[in-house]
Design a binder for these strands. Structure first.
Length: 484
RNA sequence: CGGGGCGUAGCUCAGCCCGGUUAGAGCGCUUGCCUUGGGCGCAAGAGGCCGCAGGUUCGAAUCCUGUCGCCCCGACCA
């Protein structure tokens, strides 16, 4: 068909409700249009790009032995009740009003139900099943165009193995296939370790693309391959120093000194000679936390250490527990007995300054070994850009990333709850060992890959009609984007 | 779900605070002319029940209430 006959409705003006570049460009170039919040119609040009991406995905999935399915999006609720995920998803899952049906946000349950009906022997595994399909998630807040929508296209794959080694093989095969897929799509990606969250299982990795439109913040090392979500990222930053001899503690009058900066300024000391105190509650239990200097505490890490939801103490609680207001709290002279934990950087440190638990007073020469009943030391800090990489020591960068893929070792979570068992070599019944692999799973989608491509391909001038034509062709040519 | 913003021509917006004749602009669209090799120029024209529903008023796009929708921040994100 002639290009001039094509339906490519372009717009000159930047759409009022599109904020990020990719969203604006995809609309302006006529790739798609919104139908409602988080719902998009893909027009021929946009669908052409999407189809090319799907083609690449199919080729790489087939190459690792994947078999393509087409599963229903309309699912009986009962299936989801078997794994208790009706509750787990809550409002995120769409429920039909006039039937006991839900719109599938992912397909572990369906796959597992098929597996339990048909896979009876270890001889029938491994299996890799995948599909490219429309998913539905009732996002409380769709945003950034196609980045987070209520209906989207996703490739989801599932592996079924009879052994844990087999799971590793399937998992690694997917990781490799994903590398090829993103590379062929022309995306510069990096891989971060992730928590498997409520998906369950023993491990997972996220494939991410650097973008300031991203929703995740990642500490990234360009020298080695270290990459970790800031929620879990660590750095090889030095600990606080320890001198040969500890001097006796001394109380210092520090009128109106609250912050670490004010304290170091007032006492003419380094911020790294100060211990910052924070009080959090984990449930009903107050916990006193020490950080070195101006280090920021990472609530996600604290939560991991304490094993529950945490919240900062209120001002009145601070006063009751310590005898002072925020800014004057410290390890010595506490009013109430509290669990005390501290950041690793403070382990064994001495000569430190902290609050005296008395407003307008601080205490100096604190020795954490001698004066503070620290229950345990943990990595509790938020990694900052420029700190040394924990693996290679080079500088870390803090970047925003878009999750374009997520792979999980599910293990037996679904096979156990849904009783998907097989007979092993000895004739013993075992639950199937599963993996789940999404491009890009919860936050991702094929359409997001399109989005990323558009985003990365944009130039100062934006993408005009001719450029879009070429962009699409280039997408079709598997990542020869340099030519655009 | 909490906070903020916005809903006026296909698009981007003005008008609304200080209610009052046929509601405007640019771009787009249609027609004609011009030009006849590139987001051209000139002229004419179509197109809006001012998101929807109530209310206040002699009179509402303009004020009030409700409602729906959309966007942003936050919470959430399997």
């Amino acid at each position: 068909m002639r290009f001039t006959k094509g339906f490519f409705p372009t717009v000159k003006e930047v759409p009022a409700d599109a904020v990020i570049a990719s969203h604006q460009l995809m609309i302006r170039a006529g790739l798609m249009r919104p139908l409602g919040a988080g719902i998009y119609s893909f027009f021929p040009l946009g669908y052409a790009v999407m189809k090319k991406v799907m083609q690449i995905i199919r080729e790489e999935m087939d190459a690792i032995g994947g078999q393509e399915f087409h599963l229903p999006a309309l699912n009986p609720v009962e299936l989801w009740e078997e794994t208790d995920r009706v509750k787990a998803f809550g409002d995120i899952m769409f429920h039909l009003k006039n039937r006991a049906l839900v719109l599938a946000p992912t397909h572990e349950e369906i796959i597992t139900s098929i597996a339990r009906n048909h896979i009876k022997s270890y001889k029938e595994m491994p299996q890799i099943w995948y599909q490219i399909q429309t998913k539905f998630r009732n996002e409380p807040r769709p945003k950034s165009g196609v980045l987070r929508g209520r209906q989207f296209t996703m490739k989801d794959a599932y592996s079924m193995d009879s052994t844990w080694d087999g799971l590793d093989v399937s998992y690694n095969a997917h990781a490799e296939a994903y590398r090829k897929i993103y590379t062929r799509c022309g995306l510069k990606f990096f891989i971060v370790g992730a928590s498997s969250g409520a998906m369950g299982g023993s491990g997972s990795q996220e494939f991410m693309v650097e973008s300031n439109a991203g929703e995740d913040t990642v500490a990234l090392c360009d020298a080695c391959s270290y990459a970790a979500n800031v929620e879990v990222a660590a750095s090889a930053i030095a600990k606080a120093s320890r001198t040969e001899n500890s001097k006796p503690v001394e109380e210092i009058h520090t009128p109106n000194i609250k912050s670490i900066d004010e304290l170091s300024e007032f006492l003419k000391i380094q911020t790294s000679q100060c211990a910052k105190s924070l009080v959090y509650f984990c449930g009903e239990t107050p916990v006193l936390i020490f950080m070195l200097g101006n280090d920021q505490m990472n609530e996600a890490k604290l939560q991991g250490v304490l094993g529950g939801d945490v919240r900062p103490a209120h001002p009145e609680e601070l006063l009751a527990l310590t005898g002072a207001d925020a800014g004057s709290i410290g390890p010595i002279g506490l009013k109430a007995k509290m669990k005390i934990i501290a950041d690793n950087r403070l382990e064994g440190a001495n000569g430190l300054y902290s609050g005296a638990n008395k407003n307008d007073y601080h205490v100096g020469n604190i020795d954490f070994n001698r004066d503070v009943a620290v229950e345990s030391y943990h990595d509790l800090r938020i990694v900052e850009g420029g700190e040394p990489c924990p693996d290679c020591g080079k500088e870390l960068r803090i970047v925003k990333g878009i999750e374009v893929g997520h792979i999980f070792k599910l293990g037996t979570k679904y096979s156990v709850s849904m009783k998907a068992n097989f007979l092993d070599e000895k004739g013993a019944e075992q639950p199937i060992i599963m993996g789940s692999y999404g491009i890009g799973h919860y936050l991702g989608q094929n359409s997001r890959s399109v989005r990323c491509s558009s985003h990365l391909r944009q130039r100062q001038r934006g993408i005009g009609r001719k450029k879009v034509g070429r962009a699409v062709r280039c997408t079709m040519c598997e990542g020869s984007y340099g030519a655009v």
